[in-house]
């Protein structure tokens, strides 16, 4: 059976999203490896559930985290998308949302929390600081991009990103989860996760 690449979210159509090429690549790979009818159907159901109840571990270190708080309040209301549940323990979280500058002193802590999370796990890097070091790129104490420490699934640029940008990034993650192979795929990754290029 063909794995469908049509991943729309609510009223956002497939074509409304940018960066669709990576999804297409994932779908191609899945189809090439062969996807069984039953497994694919179950996968779809599971992934539908997974993508609509993403539990976040908030790793907010500075300014960007305040914009995240605005997401939680009534106007932007992230409960509409199913990721209003935030966990303070890495063991119970599906994704880690890194918001704010990561310094050398913090880097081992971030890595440790990431390692403590259970598979399948995702990383969302929010803000210029997490992507490249942002305004502090020349500092002696700032990590120039968290992808040097942990693999990142979605980057949300901005300083700080607007709440709308948060949503766009989170929807991109949902779409990624929707096309993943869950059974025999991401649910049992024993090897070290590959570094993203």
């Amino acid at each position: 059976m063909e794995v469908k690449k049509r991943t729309a979210i609510r009223s956002m159509e497939y074509g409304d999203f940018k960066n669709n090429d990576y999804l297409e690549k994932m779908v191609d790979e899945l189809n090439r490896d062969g996807a069984g009818v039953i497994l694919t159907t179950i996968d779809e159901v599971i992934n539908w559930g997974r993508s609509n109840s993403l539990w976040t571990l908030n790793f907010g270190t500075s300014c960007c985290a305040i914009e995240f708080m605005a997401l939680g309040a009534a106007r932007y209301d992230m409960a509409r998308f199913g990721f209003e549940v935030t966990r303070n323990s890495p063991r119970q979280a599906d994704l880690i949302m890194v918001m704010g500058t990561i310094t050398y002193k913090m880097a081992p802590v971030l890595k440790r929390l990431y390692d403590q999370m259970a598979e399948p796990k995702y990383v969302v890097a929010v803000g210029g600081c997490t992507i490249t070091g942002g305004p502090f790129i020349k500092s002696y104490h700032v990590v120039n991009g968290i992808d040097k420490i942990i693999p990142v699934d979605v980057f949300i640029p901005g300083c700080p990103p607007r709440p709308e940008a948060f949503y766009y990034g989170m929807m991109q993650l949902q779409r990624k989860i929707k096309v993943e192979k869950f059974l025999g795929g991401v649910n049992r990754q024993e090897k070290e996760p590959k570094e993203e290029k």
Binding site: G100, V109, F136
Partner: peptide, 30 residues
């Protein structure tokens, strides 16, 4: 302390005065 020590004061020493302004908003963002 120091988990968010970004070295702002050191960076500022190599910035021109108008450039140094960019850092202040990010100290105490409230």
């Amino acid at each position: 302390c120091g988990y968010i020590h970004r070295g702002v004061e050191k960076i500022s020493e190599s910035l021109t005065y108008p450039q140094t302004l960019a850092m202040t908003d990010r100290l105490d963002y409230l």
